[in-house]
Design a protein around this nucleic acid. Structure first.
Lengths: 241, 241
DNA sequence: TAGTGGTCTAGACCACGTG
DNA sequence: ACGTGGTCTAGACCACTAC
């Protein structure tokens, strides 16, 4: 008795597949609504419902009079969607990244489970220090599966003004559509406190993040330590009117 | 040249006003879509768009074949919408509350600013210890404006199996539709560590929460300390497919 | 069976951006 | 002027719930 899925779900799925296959790339305009309606043999209203859901999921953006576009992980976009660290006035600002190290290694059990890869599968292991207002504030340890990012090299970071997820999108065609963050409080270790410029034994936010692309495929796993003495992590729930 | 707002916004506004005025109370069924369409002199499609937005904002819930209802702050609802503390397996469970103290006082500057009330305006000052799996995990210090909760007394907590926001809704007709939480890491003070049963100097999550009802009116301000040694704060961003 | 919300259609008109 | 997305309408039919 499997309930028949509504038509617009099917349309949405076809659009998502087209995005995944690279038919339309980030920042590009997709087909207009009348064109999509004709291609899929449905009415415009049905197309609009499908596109509307994809827009609500931060995958497409509609612009009246111009068209519908695949979201691009610009700095502004990252700031609004994925970055939640604010200063004491509630203002947000993207950090500047400084690469500490980058090497190949093998996934430990936890990382393998998070990334849905085999234990000891090859990963890229990155450490980076992120600064806000010139002050080191965030220490990232990032693990990426080599299977997806084989050609990732240090040189790609040197000349970058964008974000890591922007790099994923531009160079590897991988769009992060959702991240899950699990936050706990920890005491800064000796090395962490030195890098972040805080007293040994200071409290830090420890954020375990997993980033997912389409179809809930995990792509990046990171552990992020945040000096929250001058910043906070902002979470908004419910979004009422 | 003020752009004319679309019709469905007007309809949405009228529905929100009716909710605020108490015409339909939590858990009750509101008028059917054809009835609303006739009352407001618009087509059903326009009503559906308005109701759809209110549903997306967690203010109404539609149930096929039954009707559209005002959300009720049941335990399940709270768990899914406003409670973000999970155990190490990622499971959620609502805490049991134990009231530590409740007294009248006056708002300090920070609290007054958060609640949009005058400095030194009268507030109710509550301390409560919340336990997960029988283990004290969260220490809440809550400030409520007396202007909204004049009749709040300790007896209302004694016989309670619901949540604080459920109490707001049932006894005071106030529905929280959005909360903002600002999270930092702190070191447990002497009293905090004793109440939470952790070692002095342990790291804790410090969550500054403000709860809002319709029209962005702040209603409750609290500072929440969480023992994150066995739990974490879960945040999901982007919600892609 | 009657009433509810959910889907889908077809078409008119509006608001906006581009050439 | 044209094409885009945005709004609004009217009506048909489906899926589900209650009685």
């Amino acid at each position: 008795m499997a309930a028949r899925p509504p038509l617009y779900r099917h349309v949405k799925q076809q659009i998502t597949d087209a995005l995944r296959s690279g038919k339309w790339k980030h920042g590009q305009k997709i087909a207009s609504e009348p064109q999509l309606a004709e291609r899929f043999g449905v009415s415009i209203g049905t197309v609009r419902k499908a596109v509307g859901e994809l827009e609500a999921e931060n995958i497409l953006v509609r612009e009246q009079g111009r068209g519908t576009f695949v979201v691009s992980h610009t700095r502004d976009y990252m700031l609004n969607v994925f970055f939640r660290v604010v200063d004491s006035d509630g203002h947000k600002e993207l950090p500047t990244m400084s690469l500490l190290s980058m090497k190949r290694g093998r996934a430990d059990g936890t990382t393998a489970a998070l990334l849905h890869i085999a234990p000891r599968a090859p990963v890229i292991d990155i450490e980076a220090l992120l600064s806000l207002k010139g002050r080191p504030t965030i220490l990232d340890r990032i693990r990426l599966p080599v299977s997806l990012f084989a050609e990732l090299g240090e040189h790609l970071f040197k000349r970058r003004d964008g974000t890591l997820y922007g790099l994923f999108q531009e160079r590897f065609g991988i769009t992060i559509v959702r991240v899950e963050e699990n936050i706990t409080a920890v005491i800064a270790g000796e090395r962490d406190s030195r890098l972040l410029g805080v007293a040994n034994g200071s409290p830090l936010l420890r954020i375990r993040r997993v980033g997912y692309t389409y179809k809930n495929v995990p792509v990046d796993a990171r552990v992020r330590l945040v000096d929250s003495s001058k910043h906070g992590y902002l979470s908004v729930l419910g979004s009422g009117s």
